[in-house]
Design a protein around this nucleic acid. Structure first.
Lengths: 125, 125, 125, 125
DNA sequence: GTGGTCTAGACCACG
DNA sequence: GTGGTCTAGACCACT
């Protein structure tokens, strides 16, 4: 369970949980039709109210990333891994595009933008 | 006035306004000690509650980007342009870093990330 | 065995099973005092927890549609066929009435409702 | 406000509220872009917890039947009336179809089904 | 004053 | 033991 809750983040906790599972599924920590931990276990582990976890799971099942078997638990939908990777990819693309646009609108020129990007990826290596 | 309010964005409206001014100042639309439009005019123009504009200005003056002359109006702080460019730059760096980290944690490899970035900057040309 | 379980239906599985037997008895698939399949066989066949089948049978025997001989099995109560047909009929009447009321309350007029009904029965032919 | 909560219904309260608004909008009680009562007011009126109302509104806005203006309230989406009528219609069609199928599978013949339908619509007149 | 989020905790249906 | 629903009530961001 790789989720770490940042209580001070402006993002709601249920969203952090939700995204945590998207990441783990994309990473392959849970495979198709594998059972996820129970709502109660997660809530204890993350020190969070069960309702908050339920909410996260609700969104995930709404998005068909997980499915529910009544009285049994929540399971990873088949094909969810690819779906999650795709979601993350498009989210990232969108956000980076927006950020770069912002630079342009603020008067940064191509070279400056290019350097900035190099800087970031260089650090990451 | 280049600000466009997206009511459906999860970002608060006051923040959109605030950031709009940061952008315009960075771009050079307003120079040092130039008077900004009145709260009232802005609120009418953006079809927004005057309180919301006031809040945006409150934060901006808190950040020393603008200053208030009571009874007269809000003015651009000297040196605000450079300050705003810096703010935008570091914000962008931070955000892009975070997004790239996310890709890594989701199991994307260097090549995939590199291609994705190329894709975005390519499109922007 | 004509029962098909829809795991995704909001209706509980035990109810689907229960209603499946009511249907089969009404249709004449089982006659008075005939032995029903064992809980175990049904649970295997439907890929369902035996408890769930037991619960369905419990309600059915509560309703005097079937009766239990301990250690032997469950049997169709004499006269159950007529009973089941009646149950189905009144259930259907009730439900259709409710649905039509709903249309009225939503502002549909007599003609629209008439057409809608025709449409459905037409299709069914 | 035409909603009446049936605490004993198997349907969750939030769903009853949700459907109540769908009905009222379909009926024309609220028109495009009209503000709905506040969550708090509704919760007081229906003697229900505010969270429950919030949940109903959440689903409605998910379905684009209403939209939210932050800090102001919930509003009817333009075109929601037609949408709601359509939703009700297809729901009703689906349910009635299912009920009639049931009759057939239970061994009722065309004439019996026809009479039953006549009976219901006759009563309704 | 508006809705959004969260906690604490309860009860219930289901398997 | 599993999740679904609900209450009571709190705090917060936004307008």
């Amino acid at each position: 369970m790789k989720i770490i809750i940042d209580e001070n983040s402006p993002r709601p906790i249920y969203e952090q949980i939700m995204f945590g599972f998207i990441q783990m599924i994309a990473f392959g920590d849970y495979s198709d039709d594998e059972k996820l931990p129970s709502v109660r276990d997660i809530s204890v582990f993350l020190k969070v109210n069960p309702n908050t976890v339920t909410r996260a799971f609700f969104y995930l099942s709404n998005e068909k990333i997980i499915y529910l078997k009544r009285g049994i638990g929540n399971f990873v939908s088949p094909g969810a891994m690819e779906d999650c990777k795709q979601r993350i990819k498009s989210r990232v693309e969108e956000n980076i595009s927006r950020e770069l646009e912002l630079l342009e609108r603020a008067g940064f020129n191509k070279t400056e933008i290019y350097n900035l990007l190099n800087n970031i990826t260089g650090r990451a290596k």
